[in-house]
Design a protein around this nucleic acid. Structure first.
Length: 276
DNA sequence: ATGCGCCTGGGA
DNA sequence: TCCCAGGCGCAT
């Protein structure tokens, strides 16, 4: 599913065709919740004629700043895809929205499960969103002191749900949270307040390394094939996963069978021997 | 802290 | 046919 590396890869794939383009039309907007709280009509009225000035990412949001100080934010949720095509490429049954551009490209938002959202935010609304999100794990401000401070703020919380909390840290989802905890040798049920400084440093490093490697591999495309970027390309990180989806297989570290357990309502994959 | 709803396709 | 996948907001 799209987590930070997949969203980053998707944003990068738009870098060539989007900046500087002007929206000349909106099509295929037949599922109104996609652009809530605006109505499709108001969304179209607000978008047509606007120029997309750049492409960015914050947490799991793709950011498309416009020339009027508004920002179009795109959240792919579970099954969304965002890509540009030559202007005449037809929609399919899962296309939720097409922005026609003045450079003979079109921006397609395709989303099988309809959870994804495109929101047009004022500068103040975007600032409010930004302030609700935790630090960027690959940003310069994220170091072990910051992580330690944030862990101390929730001493009784279990690590796994904490890593999934976007207010705690931005961008991790189920796959990379499990992989980070495995690399750090930390059990998903460990309470945040019990970590030593050395363990905190290990966790920070594990998170940064997993995310960086996954970005280089252009994300994780599982066998269900949901996530793809650009012109339908899969990411290559699935083969590098060490625990996610590997229940019952042997731990790559110690050979013990890997376990799966529901924690905080989500399946968690870990090695009961290596992760303490 | 936990559970549900939002959705759909794919697998058991 | 049922159930599961899970990001996120919301209710309990």
């Amino acid at each position: 599913m799209p987590e930070l590396p997949e969203v980053e890869t998707t944003a990068r794939s738009l870098q060539r065709s989007l900046p500087g383009s002007k929206v000349i039309g909106v099509r295929e907007l037949d599922y109104a919740p996609t652009v809530e709280p605006l109505s499709p009509k108001d969304f179209i009225k607000a978008m047509v004629g606007r120029q997309i000035t750049s492409v960015g990412r914050r947490a799991k949001y793709i950011l498309l700043p416009l020339d009027n100080d508004h920002t179009l934010t795109v959240h792919l949720r579970m099954s969304g895809r965002l890509f540009t095509t030559p202007a005449e490429t037809p929609a399919d049954r899962h296309t939720r929205l097409i922005l026609d551009l003045d450079n003979y490209y079109a921006l397609h938002f395709r989303d099988v499960r309809k959870f994804g959202r495109m929101q047009l935010l004022t500068a103040a609304e975007y600032a409010a969103l930004d302030s609700r999100l935790g630090p960027e794990p690959l940003g310069t401000g994220f170091n072990s002191a910051v992580l330690a401070e944030r862990l101390q703020a929730h001493p009784r919380a279990r690590l796994k749900p904490l890593l999934l909390d976007q207010q705690f840290l931005a961008g991790l989802g189920n796959i990379y949270a499990d992989e980070s905890l495995f690399r750090a040798g930390l059990h998903p049920l460990r309470q945040a307040g019990t970590l030593s400084m050395e363990e905190i440093q290990r966790l920070r490093l594990a998170i940064c390394e997993v995310l960086s490697e996954a970005i280089i591999a252009e994300g994780t495309t599982l066998s269900n094939g949901v996530y793809r970027f650009g012109q339908d390309q899969p990411g290559r990180f699935a083969e590098r996963l060490q625990v996610y989806g590997h229940e019952g297989k042997t731990c790559p570290q110690c050979g013990e069978p890997l376990q799966r357990q529901i924690i905080g309502g989500r399946s968690s994959h870990f090695c009961p021997a290596c992760q303490v």
